[in-house]
């Protein structure tokens, strides 16, 4: 799993040297920004179900045709899977906030997602809509502190860019 510390250690190990002052400074920089990340992760974990529900509702409100026969959400089972997937993306964002990098999203969310959606002929637009709604709905200081919100939104944008 890629994070600042593992990147530093991998580089030091490849060179066969002890962690240098540069390595320690890199880790120190990561630690200084960690408080905001962990705050965002905590708030997101606490409200994960509610955020997922709001995001899914927003997407089905905008693309109501998705529930018509023959579309991607024409049965309750399929609708539930859409909510589940949104929950997965938000959970992976929670992980990214914890490690301080996009590793969890890259490895468990985005790698292969495009191929899967294409083979199941699922539209990615509604996911983008749901996550965009979450991004625009979140605000500081109601949900979390401004710096934490900034970290949260940057990962939302990362998923949105990957899916659109």
């Amino acid at each position: 799993m890629k994070s600042v510390v593992t990147t530093v250690v991998t580089a030091a190990d490849a060179a066969g040297r002890f962690p240098s002052q540069n390595d320690l400074e890199a880790v120190q920089g990561n630690i200084q920004r960690a408080a905001a990340r962990l705050e965002a992760a905590e708030k997101l974990a606490a409200g994960l179900d509610a955020v997922t529900r709001e995001a899914g509702d927003a997407c089905f409100n905008k693309y109501a045709y998705l529930k018509q026969p023959g579309e991607a959400g024409d049965s309750q089972v399929k609708v539930d899977k859409c909510y589940r997937d949104l929950g997965h993306y938000l959970r992976l964002i929670n992980y990214c906030l914890v490690v301080g990098g996009t590793g969890p999203l890259d490895e468990w969310g985005i790698a292969g997602a495009r191929e899967v959606y294409r083979s199941l002929s699922l539209p990615t637009g509604p996911y983008v809509e749901a996550l965009t709604y979450t991004r625009d709905r979140a605000c500081a200081p109601r949900d979390m502190s401004p710096q934490a919100l900034n970290e949260f939104k940057s990962y939302l944008d990362y998923v949105i860019n990957a899916l659109s």
């Binding site: 510390v5 593992t6 974990a45 914890v98 490690v99």
Partner: peptide, 23 residues
Amino acid sequence: LDAFSRSVVSADAKTAPVGGSDL
């Protein structure tokens, strides 16, 4: 793994977000 990714990997095994005592 480091301390952070360790908690992520164990949370992923039970498909739960990282929160509370892990944090």
